[in-house]
Simulated scan of single mutants.
Amino acid sequence: MTDGQVPATFRRRLVVVAISEYDEGTTAAQTRFRAGIGAQVAVVEDWWGGAALDDERRFTPSHPPKPLQSVHDLRAFLIDEDLVSAHEDEALVIYITGHGLAPQGAQHFLRLTDTRLERPLSTAFPTAELVTAALDSRAEHVLVMVDSCFSGRLEEELHTHLKALHPDRKALHTLVVLAAGNEESTPRLRAFTSALAAVHAHCTDEASGYARSHLSWEEFHTVLDTVWDPAEMADVHVLWPPSSVGRRLAASEPSPCLPNPGHTDTTLLEDARSQVGWTRAELDYYWITRATGQMSGDAGWYFTGRATLISEMNDFLAGDDSAIIVTGQAGSGKSALLARLVTLSDPRFRADPAYRPYVCRCSRKTDPQVIPQN
């Protein structure tokens, strides 16, 4: 990836393994559990496969063709999915939910409909097997979310299973496994996805400030820390990568596995300038509402001034100097000058029909050089 952008060529696959059918408890309790699992899956699919995402960010959901009742059913589904054959340019997101089992020992199992509690080794599915298949593929961007009781137990188990993982893949901070709590946690239904939903809602808020098409892992955890409510949400644990790679996943690069639900329209500015120019909402405010004395339907008028400062900045861009320092008191308009420079030098903005009338009313003498994106 370059310039903080996620290539549109990435293939995106969302694999959902959700076990909701268990022959225990009252009929009402079984109905509530199925509804709870369905609600959890809906949160995940809304984030990664929802209609609000454009085609270049939406993941294709994959479900088992029939309920997963036995270990054989789950293995057959995973064979069809062929996770180990995922390619480098594929982003994998895997969501696993259902009852978890943690018998004596260090293993974690996903309980299935036909699982017999006294025989977990042969009738329950070893969760680490599924996780390992994804991490040992060639996909460079993987997110696995394990939303079940005792899922934190996987941390120690993964470190054992993945000792043979190639050193290059061990060094990747883009292979991520999240769990709904530690090795003893028994989160309530929807507790893990409530945390996801809160992050989703925060990023959708225009005031959040996250405008890129994808979040970084650093941004994801910053938002999670902000919105986390211990009374309503599971304590999301990072099981992988190991602490030697970066326990808090302090990676600033956008991840193909984290499409930003609050992504603003950056087609207005070319990608190289989208992070230093104004967003469309800000452009509407500064170029149309605040900067003009317009009446409805009128292109309005514009103040003039600062021609000398603007000319100096334009000359810098056209020259060979490597740096320029813009100084001034707080509120004197430093950011406004820089934003004007960035915006007016962008050919996509200048050609946008919504702003062309206002651009044409600016003085040609203070226009910066139009710089196409390389």
Rank of each mutant, 00 (worst) to 15 (best):
H200D: 15
A102N: 01
H173T: 07
H141Q: 10
A354Q: 05
M1H: 02
A28Y: 06
V236T: 00
R273N: 14
R280E: 09
P259F: 01
V84T: 13
A124G: 04
A339N: 12
E88K: 09
A29P: 04
I371R: 14
A86Q: 03
R57A: 14
M233G: 08
P261E: 11
R119I: 02
Y210D: 13
G209K: 03
D352S: 08
T97V: 15
A134M: 02
T366L: 06
D265V: 12
G246Y: 02
H63K: 01
A28G: 05
T132A: 08
R190K: 13
P372S: 13
Y355I: 07
H214I: 09
F150G: 00
L338W: 03
P230M: 12
P67E: 10
G305D: 10
T327Q: 03
Y358S: 10
P65I: 14
L309R: 07
T264L: 10
D114H: 06
E56C: 00
L135D: 02
T222F: 05
S213I: 07
E155P: 13
A207M: 05
L215S: 08
D352V: 03
G262M: 10
S216H: 06
L172T: 07
P65C: 13
V359Y: 02
E129I: 00
T27R: 13
E206A: 14
R58N: 12
L92N: 05
G105A: 09
A128S: 12
S244Q: 09
E90C: 11
A39I: 06
W48E: 14
F77M: 03
L337R: 09
M1R: 05
R348Q: 03
D321Q: 14
P126Q: 06
D352I: 02
G152Q: 01
E155T: 04
V144H: 03
A207N: 12
A91E: 03
T97P: 00
L268D: 12
H141V: 11
S62E: 15
S208N: 03
T27E: 04
S274Y: 01
Q294R: 01
R350P: 04
Q329T: 11
K365E: 08
T127I: 00
A323S: 15
P64K: 04
S216D: 01
S255G: 05
D265G: 09
H263Q: 13
L83S: 02
Y210Q: 07
E156I: 05
V177G: 04
A195M: 13
R111W: 06
L178D: 04
L130Y: 08
G277H: 05
V199K: 01
A171R: 12
R34E: 10
A39F: 11
G100K: 02
R58S: 11
A51F: 01
V15D: 05
G25E: 03
T327R: 13
A8F: 11
G319N: 02
A164D: 13
V6Q: 08
M313L: 15
R13E: 14
D265F: 07
T9F: 08
K66D: 12
E140Y: 04
A197Y: 10
G331L: 03
A164R: 13
F220D: 07
T267A: 12
H263N: 11
S213M: 01
K163T: 11
A201Q: 09
